[in-house]
Amino acid sequence: MTETPTTHPSSPAGASPAPGADVPARRFAVPGRIAVSEQAAAVWQTATLTEIRRETPQTATFRLAVPDWAGHLPGQHLMLRLTAPDGYVAQRHYSIASAPDDSGHIELTLDHVPDGEVSGWFHTVARPGDTVELRGPLSGFFAWPGDRPALLLGAGSGIVPLMSMVRHHRRRGLTVPLRMLASARSPEELIYASELGAETTPLFTRSAPHGVPVGRMAAAHVAPLLAQQPPGGWEAYVCGSNGFAEHASRLLVAAGQPVDRIRIERFG
Protein backbone atom coordinates (compact mmCIF):
# COMPACT_ATOMS: atom_id res chain seq x y z
CA MET A 1 0.00 0.00 0.00
CA THR A 2 1.40 3.36 -0.94
CA GLU A 3 0.33 6.88 -0.09
CA THR A 4 -3.34 6.23 0.45
CA PRO A 5 -4.81 9.25 2.15
CA THR A 6 -7.85 7.27 3.20
CA THR A 7 -10.55 9.34 4.77
CA HIS A 8 -12.81 6.62 6.12
CA PRO A 9 -12.91 2.85 6.26
CA SER A 10 -13.62 1.73 2.74
CA SER A 11 -17.02 0.23 2.15
CA PRO A 12 -16.71 -3.51 1.82
CA ALA A 13 -17.68 -4.36 -1.72
CA GLY A 14 -20.92 -6.30 -1.88
CA ALA A 15 -22.02 -5.58 1.67
CA SER A 16 -25.39 -3.92 1.46
CA PRO A 17 -25.63 -1.29 4.20
CA ALA A 18 -22.67 1.04 4.46
CA PRO A 19 -20.64 0.24 7.56
CA GLY A 20 -21.18 2.62 10.39
CA ALA A 21 -24.37 3.85 8.78
CA ASP A 22 -25.70 5.28 11.99
CA VAL A 23 -22.42 5.67 13.80
CA PRO A 24 -21.18 9.26 13.99
CA ALA A 25 -18.59 9.84 11.27
CA ARG A 26 -15.08 9.90 12.67
CA ARG A 27 -11.71 10.32 11.10
CA PHE A 28 -10.01 7.25 9.84
CA ALA A 29 -7.09 5.91 11.85
CA VAL A 30 -3.92 7.09 10.21
CA PRO A 31 -3.17 5.07 7.10
CA GLY A 32 0.21 3.46 6.52
CA ARG A 33 2.82 5.40 4.58
CA ILE A 34 4.47 2.73 2.46
CA ALA A 35 4.13 -0.74 1.08
CA VAL A 36 5.84 -3.30 3.27
CA SER A 37 7.92 -6.09 1.81
CA GLU A 38 6.39 -9.32 3.02
CA GLN A 39 9.47 -11.20 1.92
CA ALA A 40 11.91 -9.11 3.97
CA ALA A 41 9.68 -9.41 7.03
CA ALA A 42 9.40 -13.17 6.80
CA VAL A 43 13.07 -14.12 6.60
CA TRP A 44 15.40 -14.33 9.59
CA GLN A 45 18.85 -13.00 8.75
CA THR A 46 22.13 -13.25 10.61
CA ALA A 47 23.61 -9.90 11.60
CA THR A 48 27.15 -9.37 12.88
CA LEU A 49 27.90 -6.78 15.52
CA THR A 50 30.71 -4.53 14.25
CA GLU A 51 30.80 -1.61 16.69
CA ILE A 52 29.44 -0.47 20.05
CA ARG A 53 29.25 3.26 20.88
CA ARG A 54 28.16 4.58 24.25
CA GLU A 55 25.54 7.32 23.91
CA THR A 56 24.45 8.01 27.50
CA PRO A 57 24.93 6.19 30.83
CA GLN A 58 21.89 4.03 30.01
CA THR A 59 22.07 3.73 26.23
CA ALA A 60 24.50 2.55 23.60
CA THR A 61 24.43 2.22 19.84
CA PHE A 62 25.06 -1.18 18.28
CA ARG A 63 26.19 -1.24 14.65
CA LEU A 64 25.32 -4.41 12.78
CA ALA A 65 26.48 -5.74 9.42
CA VAL A 66 23.45 -7.18 7.63
CA PRO A 67 24.67 -8.23 4.18
CA ASP A 68 21.21 -8.97 2.76
CA TRP A 69 19.42 -6.01 4.33
CA ALA A 70 16.53 -5.07 2.02
CA GLY A 71 16.73 -1.40 3.01
CA HIS A 72 14.38 0.53 5.26
CA LEU A 73 12.75 3.89 5.61
CA PRO A 74 13.29 6.14 8.63
CA GLY A 75 10.88 5.20 11.42
CA GLN A 76 10.66 1.48 10.66
CA HIS A 77 11.57 -1.20 13.17
CA LEU A 78 12.77 -4.78 13.12
CA MET A 79 12.41 -7.90 15.20
CA LEU A 80 15.58 -9.23 16.78
CA ARG A 81 16.10 -12.58 18.47
CA LEU A 82 18.71 -14.19 20.67
CA THR A 83 18.95 -17.96 21.13
CA ALA A 84 20.30 -19.77 24.21
CA PRO A 85 22.14 -23.12 23.95
CA ASP A 86 19.02 -25.01 25.10
CA GLY A 87 16.98 -23.48 22.28
CA TYR A 88 15.28 -20.82 24.40
CA VAL A 89 14.58 -17.78 22.25
CA ALA A 90 13.93 -14.17 23.24
CA GLN A 91 12.71 -11.73 20.61
CA ARG A 92 12.05 -7.99 20.74
CA HIS A 93 11.05 -5.18 18.41
CA TYR A 94 13.61 -2.39 18.07
CA SER A 95 13.48 0.83 16.12
CA ILE A 96 16.21 1.43 13.58
CA ALA A 97 18.39 4.44 14.45
CA SER A 98 20.41 4.79 11.28
CA ALA A 99 19.28 6.49 8.11
CA PRO A 100 18.82 4.33 5.04
CA ASP A 101 22.11 3.97 3.18
CA ASP A 102 23.92 1.40 1.08
CA SER A 103 26.59 0.51 3.64
CA GLY A 104 25.16 -2.93 4.39
CA HIS A 105 24.95 -1.86 8.04
CA ILE A 106 22.19 -0.70 10.33
CA GLU A 107 22.34 0.77 13.83
CA LEU A 108 20.16 0.20 16.89
CA THR A 109 20.30 2.34 20.03
CA LEU A 110 19.17 0.36 23.05
CA ASP A 111 18.26 1.35 26.57
CA HIS A 112 19.69 -0.91 29.23
CA VAL A 113 16.35 -2.08 30.67
CA PRO A 114 16.54 -3.32 34.29
CA ASP A 115 16.41 -7.14 34.15
CA GLY A 116 15.99 -6.92 30.37
CA GLU A 117 17.16 -10.25 29.00
CA VAL A 118 17.84 -8.93 25.51
CA SER A 119 19.02 -5.38 26.25
CA GLY A 120 20.97 -6.79 29.20
CA TRP A 121 22.83 -9.13 26.85
CA PHE A 122 23.64 -6.26 24.50
CA HIS A 123 24.89 -4.02 27.28
CA THR A 124 26.88 -6.52 29.33
CA VAL A 125 27.87 -9.44 27.09
CA ALA A 126 27.89 -8.37 23.44
CA ARG A 127 31.13 -7.51 21.67
CA PRO A 128 32.08 -6.97 18.02
CA GLY A 129 32.02 -10.22 16.11
CA ASP A 130 28.96 -11.59 17.89
CA THR A 131 26.02 -12.58 15.75
CA VAL A 132 22.30 -12.15 16.33
CA GLU A 133 19.27 -12.81 14.13
CA LEU A 134 16.78 -10.29 12.86
CA ARG A 135 13.89 -9.88 10.44
CA GLY A 136 12.57 -6.74 8.87
CA PRO A 137 12.13 -3.91 8.25
CA LEU A 138 8.61 -4.07 9.67
CA SER A 139 5.49 -1.91 9.47
CA GLY A 140 4.87 0.99 7.15
CA PHE A 141 2.84 2.95 9.65
CA PHE A 142 5.55 4.96 11.41
CA ALA A 143 7.73 5.31 8.32
CA TRP A 144 8.67 8.71 6.96
CA PRO A 145 9.70 8.66 3.29
CA GLY A 146 10.94 12.26 3.51
CA ASP A 147 8.05 13.62 1.50
CA ARG A 148 5.86 15.53 3.95
CA PRO A 149 6.86 18.14 6.55
CA ALA A 150 7.61 16.23 9.74
CA LEU A 151 7.04 17.29 13.32
CA LEU A 152 8.80 14.84 15.65
CA LEU A 153 8.06 14.52 19.38
CA GLY A 154 10.17 12.05 21.30
CA ALA A 155 11.17 11.27 24.87
CA GLY A 156 14.02 9.16 26.19
CA SER A 157 14.86 6.36 23.77
CA GLY A 158 11.73 7.39 21.86
CA ILE A 159 13.94 9.71 19.84
CA VAL A 160 15.69 6.71 18.23
CA PRO A 161 13.35 6.23 15.24
CA LEU A 162 12.99 10.01 14.97
CA MET A 163 16.78 10.34 14.72
CA SER A 164 16.67 8.09 11.69
CA MET A 165 14.38 10.71 10.13
CA VAL A 166 16.65 13.61 11.15
CA ARG A 167 19.68 11.81 9.73
CA HIS A 168 17.84 10.97 6.51
CA HIS A 169 16.80 14.61 6.15
CA ARG A 170 20.42 15.74 6.48
CA ARG A 171 22.00 13.01 4.41
CA ARG A 172 19.70 13.67 1.48
CA GLY A 173 19.78 17.44 1.93
CA LEU A 174 15.99 17.48 2.01
CA THR A 175 14.35 20.88 2.08
CA VAL A 176 10.96 19.71 3.37
CA PRO A 177 10.54 21.20 6.89
CA LEU A 178 11.47 18.98 9.83
CA ARG A 179 11.42 19.89 13.51
CA MET A 180 11.99 17.79 16.61
CA LEU A 181 11.14 18.24 20.28
CA ALA A 182 13.40 15.86 22.19
CA SER A 183 12.65 15.32 25.86
CA ALA A 184 15.21 13.84 28.25
CA ARG A 185 15.61 13.78 32.00
CA SER A 186 18.91 15.67 31.83
CA PRO A 187 21.53 16.74 29.29
CA GLU A 188 23.58 13.65 30.21
CA GLU A 189 20.62 11.45 29.26
CA LEU A 190 19.85 13.17 25.94
CA ILE A 191 20.74 10.59 23.28
CA TYR A 192 22.66 11.89 20.22
CA ALA A 193 23.17 15.24 22.00
CA SER A 194 26.27 16.16 20.02
CA GLU A 195 24.54 15.33 16.75
CA LEU A 196 21.39 17.40 17.26
CA GLY A 197 21.15 20.65 15.32
CA ALA A 198 18.94 23.64 14.78
CA GLU A 199 16.03 21.36 13.85
CA THR A 200 15.85 20.11 17.46
CA THR A 201 14.63 21.73 20.65
CA PRO A 202 15.82 19.70 23.65
CA LEU A 203 13.62 19.70 26.74
CA PHE A 204 14.81 18.58 30.16
CA THR A 205 12.43 17.20 32.78
CA ARG A 206 14.71 16.74 35.84
CA SER A 207 17.83 18.86 35.51
CA ALA A 208 19.20 21.29 32.97
CA PRO A 209 22.20 23.56 32.44
CA HIS A 210 22.11 26.90 34.23
CA GLY A 211 19.54 29.20 32.70
CA VAL A 212 17.68 26.42 30.86
CA PRO A 213 14.20 25.74 32.22
CA VAL A 214 13.33 22.33 33.66
CA GLY A 215 9.91 20.87 32.97
CA ARG A 216 7.66 18.62 31.01
CA MET A 217 6.76 19.18 27.39
CA ALA A 218 3.96 21.76 27.37
CA ALA A 219 1.56 23.61 25.11
CA ALA A 220 4.08 26.46 24.96
CA HIS A 221 6.51 24.17 23.13
CA VAL A 222 4.00 22.70 20.72
CA ALA A 223 1.70 25.62 19.91
CA PRO A 224 4.32 27.82 18.16
CA LEU A 225 5.21 24.97 15.81
CA LEU A 226 1.57 24.49 14.88
CA ALA A 227 1.10 28.22 14.50
CA GLN A 228 3.69 28.11 11.70
CA GLN A 229 2.23 25.33 9.58
CA PRO A 230 4.30 24.53 6.50
CA PRO A 231 2.37 24.15 3.23
CA GLY A 232 0.36 20.93 3.47
CA GLY A 233 0.66 20.87 7.25
CA TRP A 234 2.77 18.71 9.52
CA GLU A 235 2.80 14.95 9.68
CA ALA A 236 3.36 14.36 13.42
CA TYR A 237 5.38 11.41 14.75
CA VAL A 238 5.27 10.73 18.50
CA CYS A 239 7.50 8.13 20.14
CA GLY A 240 8.21 7.21 23.75
CA SER A 241 6.60 5.59 26.76
CA ASN A 242 2.83 5.32 26.82
CA GLY A 243 2.69 8.11 29.41
CA PHE A 244 4.68 10.42 27.18
CA ALA A 245 2.74 9.39 24.05
CA GLU A 246 -0.60 10.14 25.70
CA HIS A 247 0.65 13.51 26.97
CA ALA A 248 2.34 14.60 23.74
CA SER A 249 -0.51 13.49 21.48
CA ARG A 250 -3.00 15.42 23.62
CA LEU A 251 -0.82 18.52 23.35
CA LEU A 252 -0.82 18.14 19.57
CA VAL A 253 -4.60 17.70 19.39
CA ALA A 254 -5.13 20.68 21.71
CA ALA A 255 -2.90 22.79 19.48
CA GLY A 256 -4.97 21.88 16.43
CA GLN A 257 -3.07 19.01 14.83
CA PRO A 258 -5.59 16.70 13.06
CA VAL A 259 -5.80 13.30 14.78
CA ASP A 260 -5.46 11.52 11.46
CA ARG A 261 -2.03 13.09 11.00
CA ILE A 262 -0.59 11.91 14.30
CA ARG A 263 1.37 8.66 14.24
CA ILE A 264 2.23 7.16 17.60
CA GLU A 265 4.76 4.51 18.48
CA ARG A 266 4.59 3.51 22.14
CA PHE A 267 7.30 1.51 23.83
CA GLY A 268 6.21 -1.48 25.82
Binding site: A15, S16, P17, P19, D22, V23, F141, E246, V259, I264
Partner: peptide, 20 residues
Protein backbone atom coordinates in the same frame (compact mmCIF):
# COMPACT_ATOMS: atom_id res chain seq x y z
CA UNK B 1 0.56 0.05 21.90
CA UNK B 2 -2.24 1.80 20.00
CA UNK B 3 -0.97 3.75 17.01
CA UNK B 4 -3.52 6.53 17.15
CA UNK B 5 -4.59 9.22 19.59
CA UNK B 6 -6.69 7.79 22.44
CA UNK B 7 -10.20 9.14 21.80
CA UNK B 8 -12.39 10.90 24.34
CA UNK B 9 -15.38 8.61 24.09
CA UNK B 10 -18.00 8.64 26.84
CA UNK B 11 -20.28 5.62 27.38
CA UNK B 12 -23.22 7.83 26.35
CA UNK B 13 -21.54 8.43 22.97
CA UNK B 14 -20.61 4.80 22.42
CA UNK B 15 -22.57 2.59 20.06
CA UNK B 16 -22.01 -0.81 18.53
CA UNK B 17 -23.46 -1.91 15.19
CA UNK B 18 -23.43 -5.21 13.33
CA UNK B 19 -24.26 -5.01 9.64
CA UNK B 20 -23.30 -6.46 6.27
Amino acid sequence: LSAEVTPDLAPADWSFRIDG
